[in-house]
């Protein structure tokens, strides 16, 4: 058992190191956005394009999903399989809702002629927010796979440590979103 907890600590450390390098990736995209956000080539700026109540809705959905993901981990540690599955399912639905809202936002921007090819501002916007959306997509696939695993095999130590890493990943994506919400949307709306 000590060996198992030790190897889980090593896994968590390795995953944490990955998350920190992912932060550097996002930082470079944030820097690109910060440099290019005024280069609208005569087109509308973020102030005219973003709908703030809609973005606030997205933010709350992601925040609640981060909370339910934590509740799922508490159930996992109590070895309560059905409770864990229920919270994971809730997190999945909330995450999928967030993703659909984001894709809807993208498609309506592109539909109105504000695609990523229009100017430097929109290129950097779509790259930054799209990269976050891509992370959410992979998180959802990972979550679906683990839910099947929990459903079939219950909660052995291996599955538990995988769920711990997924939980870290999901919280991390919410942390990144705080900065997208503040630096992209709130800064544009002011």
């Amino acid at each position: 058992m000590t060996h198992e907890t030790e190897s889980q600590e090593v896994q968590k450390f390795g995953f944490w190191a990955y998350l920190m390098t992912d932060c550097v990736l996002f930082a470079s995209l944030f820097a690109t956005y910060a440099v290019l956000h005024n280069n609208t080539f005569g087109g509308p700026s973020g102030h005219d394009l973003f709908s703030m109540p809609y973005v606030l809705g997205e933010t709350f959905i992601l925040l609640v999903s981060s909370y339910t993901s934590g509740l799922a981990m508490l159930a996992v540690h109590k070895q309560a399989k059905n409770q864990a599955l229920a919270w994971l399912g809730t997190t999945f639905v909330l995450g999928a809702t967030f993703l659909i809202m984001e894709l809807h936002e993208f498609s309506s921007l592109i539909h109105d002629g504000h695609s990523f090819r229009t100017n430097g501002f929109l290129s950097s916007y779509f790259t930054l927010v799209g990269t976050h959306g891509l992370h959410i997509t992979f998180g959802l696939i990972w979550m679906a796979v683990l839910m099947v695993q929990v459903f079939k095999k219950g909660l052995p130590p291996k599955t538990t440590s995988r769920l711990t890493l997924l939980n870290m990943f999901w919280h991390f994506l919410d942390v990144i979103w705080i900065f997208i919400f503040t630096l992209v949307y709130l800064m544009a709306a002011r």
Partner: peptide
């Protein structure tokens, strides 16, 4: 989040 949102809007 609400504090940041309403201080802007």
């Amino acid at each position: 989040t609400l504090a940041a949102y309403f201080s802007v809007t």
